[in-house]
Write a protein that binds this DNA or RNA. Structure first.
Length: 418
RNA sequence: CGGGGAUUGGCGCAGUUGGCUAGCGCGCCGCGUUUGGGACGCGGAGGCCGGAGGUUCAAGUCCUCUAUCCCCGACCA
């Protein structure tokens, strides 16, 4: 992509109405644009990051046999009446409206109930189970207070997966498989070292729910981590009794701030019974469907990554989710353009994602934007060096560049292990 | 929802005890000189000072109401 053709604009100054680091960096770098408190547009560059995160999640969810679908944002009141969760006293984040004919509708803040109802139309027999589906959906929640940039919005992107099982045992097996898949997701997006499986309060259904927490001061939660066991306990359930129960010792726990980047729920048969969703087993007996649900806040994940991977010059995207791999620039447009175009074509043909800064501006500005946008690699072309087949390549997190020839350039950038 | 702060060209800000044509920097447009870490000179364009109502000869500035944004707290299946 040539910047001259892209819808991309960076800024030097930081917006005064944002305090959070993720919003400041993402707005300055041209990744997001604020529409109102808690609602952000994903600009072309930001959308690429979102799509890359989705790809990682999609691959891992598909790998454990889940199927992607897409539910509606509009939800009828009646479905939520079944579980009593239409009531604003029970769920205080509803956005509600009504149709012209007066029918009440809500905008999806969750899809548990609608999903359960939808599935019930298709699943009647034990032969139809187990089944798992997921979606990437925009959730709308009327939060009292939006905060922390894209980390806690009123409109945000979420991956929610639902597994329908015949028995508790079958549910538990899938639950364990998903726990591992989630860890792979965090590993792949670069958050592995900072992310902990965390025990939190379970609500009405179970003693614990499990969530994934990423260590960052910008997070809202306080958790206690055991670094060796890679397990954490949320402050809300932290006690001697719980530690013993989990086989942890107080001496080894460290208190940190963290952001919730995923949450998994084991509902057992309760939702099935509540909503009257049953299947017939081998003996022709009616049995409730067992439900578990698994969420990852996709846009929040982007915010957390921005919070963690940056320095004083800008963002530093992990390779797997960077909007492109290479920031390519000529020192001087005109004089170096011929060589830079050539490199652009070579890299593009090699399947390497390049953002080519072909603007006729001074090199200093390009360097600054390269750092701010934070692609993993920067390639600089000058005619003097290019004439002897030498090109400058630098990793975003390195200080010193390297000089390689064309071949070396392609080899280095094609190597996925890099 | 309680408390605190803010709102002035696209962005960041200044504007004295009310005073006459509302400034500065960035960005933008034009011309010229520049070109390895956000260059410089000259010349431009761009503002009902968040909104409504009041006080006054006179309101960006004072009063009342209201909207929005940020932060702390509460809340967060």
């Amino acid at each position: 992509m040539r910047i001259s053709q892209m819808f991309l604009k960076t800024t030097k100054s930081v917006p005064s109405d944002e305090q959070s680091n993720n919003a400041r960096l993402l707005i300055r770098g041209g990744f997001i644009c604020k529409e109102m408190a808690g609602a952000y547009t994903f600009l072309p560059l930001g959308l690429r990051v979102i799509e890359n995160i989705k790809t990682v999640i999609r691959e891992e969810m598909n790998a454990i046999g889940s199927s992607e679908l897409l539910m509606t944002t509009l939800q009828p009141k009646e479905i939520w009446d079944i579980t009593g969760r239409w009531d604003d006293q029970v769920v205080d984040v509803w956005f509600k409206s009504q149709l012209k004919n007066g029918q009440q509708v809500g905008f999806g803040w969750s899809h548990e109930e609608p999903m359960m109802m939808m599935i019930s139309k298709y699943v009647q027999s034990y032969r139809d189970l187990p089944i798992s589906v997921y979606q990437f959906q925009t959730k709308l929640r009327n939060e009292l207070r939006a905060k922390s940039g894209i980390m806690r919005g009123r409109e945000f992107l979420m991956k929610d997966m639902y597994a329908f099982s015949r028995t508790q045992k079958e549910l538990d097996e899938f639950y364990e498989i998903t726990k591992q898949a989630y860890l792979r997701v965090y590993e792949r997006v670069g958050l592995g070292p900072y992310t902990y499986l965390t025990f939190a309060s379970g609500g009405a259904f179970t003693q614990f729910s499990q969530e994934y927490q990423t260590i960052t001061d910008s997070g809202e939660d306080v958790i206690y981590i055991d670094k060796d066991k890679k397990i954490a306990v949320n402050e809300e359930v932290y006690s001697e009794k719980v530690l013993t129960q989990l086989g942890l010792t107080k001496e080894k726990m460290t208190k940190v701030k963290a952001a919730e980047v995923g949450n998994i729920f084991n509902f057992g048969s309760i939702k099935g019974e509540q909503m009257g969703v049953y299947y017939s087993d081998e003996a022709s007996q009616r049995q409730p469907i067992f439900l578990s649900s698994y969420g990852i806040g996709v846009s929040r994940l982007m915010g957390v990554i921005a919070e963690i991977f940056n320095d004083e010059s800008g963002l530093m995207w992990p390779k797997q989710i960077a909007p492109a791999q290479v920031y390519l620039m000529a020192i001087k447009e005109g004089k170096d353009t011929k060589y830079t175009n050539e490199i652009y074509n070579i890299l593009t043909e090699a399947g390497i994602e390049v953002i080519y800064d072909d603007r006729d501006i001074r090199p200093g500005e390009k360097f600054a934007d390269a750092d701010l946008i934070g692609l993993p690699w920067r390639v600089v072309v000058s005619s003097e060096k290019a004439a002897i087949d030498q090109y400058e390549i630098k990793e975003r997190n390195e200080k010193k560049p390297l000089f390689v020839n064309k071949q070396g350039l392609v080899a280095k950038l094609s190597d996925r292990r890099n």
